[in-house]
Design a protein around this nucleic acid. Sequence first.
DNA 1: TATGAGATCAACT
DNA 2: GTTGATCTCATAC
Length: 191
Amino acid sequence: MSSGHLDRAFFARSVHQVAPDLIGATLTVEGVGGRIVEVEAYHHTDPAAHSYRGPTPRNAVMFGPPGYAYVYRSYGIHWCLNFVCEPEGSASAVLIRAIEPLEGLAKMRRRRRLMDERLLCSGPGRLAQAMGVTDKHNGLALDRRPFELIARRDKPEVVAGVRIGITKAVELPWRYGLKGSRFRSKPFKED
DNA sequence: TATGAGATCAACT
DNA sequence: GTTGATCTCATAC
């Protein structure tokens, strides 16, 4: 997997492999997007995961096959984008927390009503707003339109840290970021 | 720089 | 009725 589009086999692995491997990949939705610089892994055995207590109408997509988008509403206001991983039924996913905006800058600025490039996509809610992701994307395959997901060419330096904005299993170091990127949402202690 | 409130909804107790 | 994988704006230090 040195180049090209990420396929279902890429996602059919452990979230703990997929999450760091996504750092540096390019994600666009209808041609708008950029390079992934921050993600978090959520495993079904993890009390902080939506799938921890079993299937519900909201998290149903997490229990389906890997390589699909799981989109949920956060705090009643924001949309958050996840990639379903692992063999079907394991209900594990990667939360996309931040990207470095590269394509469709004007569109993202218009949607966010904001000029500051650094804050356009630095956080799961901001990223979804800038890229136009909503519940209509829930359950869509990641290898088909409007999604486009291209593997990184070179292996970047990835830093790990604890996750953000959760109250359960706070100590698990399942947040991954591109080392030194200024487009991440919050700093990593480790770099 | 840091802390706090408000927005607003679905799952859960 | 409470809580949460959040963000923005306001006020305080």
